[in-house]
Every structure is written in structure tokens, then in C-alpha cells.
Design a protein around this nucleic acid. Sequence first.
DNA 1: GAGTGGTCTAGACCACGAC
DNA 2: TCGTGGTCTAGACCACTCA
Lengths: 252, 252
Amino acid sequence: MGPGEQSCQRVGTKVNGSGEELTKHARLRAVLLARVGSDWRPHDAIPSERDLMAEHGVSRATVREAIGRLVEERVLYRVHGKGTFVVGPRVQSTLHLASFTDDVRRRGLVPSTLVREVAFAVAPVEARAALRLPDGARAWRIERLRLAGGEPMALETGWYSPEVAPELGEHDLTGSLYALLASEYGVGIDHAEQTAWAEVADGDLAAALDVEAGAPVMVFLRTSSAGGRAVEHVTSWYRGDRYQVHMSLSGR
Amino acid sequence: MGPGEQSCQRVGTKVNGSGEELTKHARLRAVLLARVGSDWRPHDAIPSERDLMAEHGVSRATVREAIGRLVEERVLYRVHGKGTFVVGPRVQSTLHLASFTDDVRRRGLVPSTLVREVAFAVAPVEARAALRLPDGARAWRIERLRLAGGEPMALETGWYSPEVAPELGEHDLTGSLYALLASEYGVGIDHAEQTAWAEVADGDLAAALDVEAGAPVMVFLRTSSAGGRAVEHVTSWYRGDRYQVHMSLSGR
DNA sequence: GAGTGGTCTAGACCACGAC
DNA sequence: TCGTGGTCTAGACCACTCA
């Protein structure tokens, strides 16, 4: 195949029922990910880029793109002159991909949920960008108040890709959405990118969380994905007086 | 210049005093970073990849590499079909064992430090427990105001083990303590356990950070260690309006 | 010296957004 | 329709690691 002769698979718009057609690097990423943990053990070297090139019939840039994604996701690491390796058992222990439900249970409290709004509406630009939806696309908007031990803990506003979960809004949303996505749609969230900062609660938020206006909250902006495909774009406001995050940091 | 005729600049080992010789994409990254915050404001579009290509006389792959790094570092974001844009004004820390100094530099700002107090005093119980010091032991107490671009960013109060760094208080403490510990005592911080939550600033803290009382802050309580030995026990109060943390979460 | 990742070029087509 | 980012190819040289 000469330069430019490639057929550029559709990505993004695609309805994606189940028989996928992803980009080459996305497919290669999936193949490599599957072999991590089955064929390969932590700190094993994976085949060289040139081997993967030949093995999959793609250019080196494509191989590097696929590996690069997995390096970003901390699944692999590269060592100049030596090779590419599988990372250790797991880096972030406490900061794992737990749902609110699991998180609260682990702390010994009973989680519950109050669904405040479910709508199928035009997604704002940042949600569309995160979920890779086309301009003007609609998506599920779900606003829920999460409680722990009967007391408000967090308010969540999320956008969910209709390509991944078409009738999401018609299900019972009082439990773990991650569990629902897994059982109803076979979508297992396996990665998330998350940003956190501190704010103070304004009137509406304070009322929802049952705190005074001006109380501290921790805001999380998260995009979750399954198999490299963005599924959820959610903003959560956690009560500063009830919630804290623990993390382990490791230098290489 | 034809394919492969490039001269591949040194990178890595280089002593890097000041007269750099970095790779092309690294230099382009630096140029772009400098223009973020000076020429460009949050959510401004930067020149297109093809314009940057022509402007700097490099290939598109090189431009994409430079932009790609800044996207990974959450300095820029791309929107398919529209352009590449500057993200918001907050300084971001990746959850990697990066020092304040490195974090701020990565964001294109100049870090500085105002040492408020240095003392060799009896450590409180929680610091002794964290540093594994005997009852009644003394340790270095260091309080510093960290600034970014000349503006207060965080207040840090830390306790440091005298067993690891005996004359710590007599050094210049205006730079990175991690770098100082490494160069003076051969102690390389390689692990930290950290808890974070949101608070509002009271009078003293607000004055130090140059915000109004009641402004949001993000508090970090961290114990850092080197080779399994606890070295630092520090509490940091970061301005909520200027700082955010980013983290990658992985399941399985 | 052989093999691996790191960088770079030149050129191509596709998908998306705005006009 | 035009401009932007997204993907892909084929080929090249450099720097690093290790036998």
C-alpha cells in the first residue's frame, strides 16, 4: 500500500453496534492490551516495533501510535535502546477505578442515590469533544445526588454516549452506573482521566448537598472509557467535609 | 532536506546548562508554551498545524509531536475540524512524583519560593509517627510560600527527618527540596502517600495566599519516602482558583 | 555490530466544522 | 467548499543498550 492509499476507517460517527471498525492503531492497541496479562507478565518485553509492524502489516508510525496510547495509560513503558515493557501489577492502588457505590461501601457506609434529572438532550461542546460525538449530537444527561449513610455526599452531572448505551435513561439509575453499563451493554469501564480542584458551593449546590453556601467542595471532572472508547463525561461535586482522596505516588 | 537527512540533536544525557540543543519537537513545544499565557489566552485557538509547519520549517509529524506533548500535559486541547486551543488558567499537577518546581515549569510559569520559617523543634505526634521518630525527637520544620509567576500558589508546612538530612535547615531552601535532598544527601524520593481534600481559607491562610477569607483551597497531606524510609511529612494548602490535579485511573 | 526506541521528512486521504 | 485535525505510509538517520 503506497502513501495515502490507506482506507481510513470510520471512527467517531459510526453507530458501532458491536462489529467494530476502529482505526488501525486502535485495533492494534486492543490486541496488545489483550496480550498484556495473558501472554505477557509485568516487566516482560513486548515484541519490537519493527516486529509488530511486520506482524500486523502496518507502518511503524501506526505501531508507535498504538503503543504510545498504552504508554499514556500506563499499561506499557518504553526504554530507549532496550525495548517496550509491561508495567507492574498496578500503579495507583487507592485511586482505582471504583464506582461511587463501591467506594462508599469500602468505607463502611451504605450508598444510595436520588435521581434528579434524566434527559436526552443536545450535548454541550465539551461533552461532545470528550465523548467524540458529532456536532449537534444528543446524549443522555443524568443528574444524581449520591448519599452515604443517608447523608448527601456528592452531586453528579454526567453525559453518556448514546452510541454506547442507547436506552440508558430508561433503566433504573439508582445504583452503580458502571455496573449497569457492564450488565446491560457489555461495556466495562477500564480507564478514566480525571481532573480535580477545590471550589466553594454556591446556593443551589449547597442546598443539594445540605451544606451552607460557601462550604468547600471538591470538584472532579472525569472522562471514562471502555476499550479506548469514551463512554462517560461527568462532573462531580463532593462535600469537602465528608470526602477525601487518598493516593499513592510512585516515581517510576 | 530529504527524508532521513535530519541531524538528530542530542537529547537526554545533555548537561543542559542553558544553551540548549534539544530535539525539534522539544524546541517547538517550548516556543508554544512560551506563547501560552503571553500571546494566547485560555480558549484561544493557536495557529493550525500546517501554519506552524511552514512557520518553523518542520514536518507536520514534528508539529503534531510538539502539540501532542502539550495536550498530554493538559496545556492545549484539540477539536477535530476546528483547531487547537489553550486550556484554562489553572496550573496542573499530574499525579506523578513531581516537585512543585517541575509542575509549575511544565505549565510555563516561573516558580519561586518565600521561606517563612525554618526551625529545629520537637515534632508533633503525627509527624513523628509518619517519620518514625522516637518520642520527643526534634526535626526540621520548614514553612514556605510557593509562588508561580510571582503570585502565591501554595503554603507548605513540612517536617523533615534529621536522621536523613541533618543540616537541612542550613541550606538554601528557595528551590526544590527534592532536588536538594538528592544532591546534598543522596536521597531520592521515590514514593509518597498522599491524602487530599477541600477546605476554605481562614484569615491567616487567606492572607498568605493573597485571597479572600473563605476562598477554596485544596489541602494535601503527604508523607514521602526514599527507599522505604520516610523523609518528609508535609501539609500543603493550594489555591483552588489556580491549581488542579490530574490523574489517570486504570481498572483491572 | 546488531537490535531497539527516538526523531524526522514528504506526501496522501479521510472526517469534521464552518461558511 | 475550504480549512482543521486524524490517520497512515515508506523510508531514513541517530542515540542507546548489550553482547
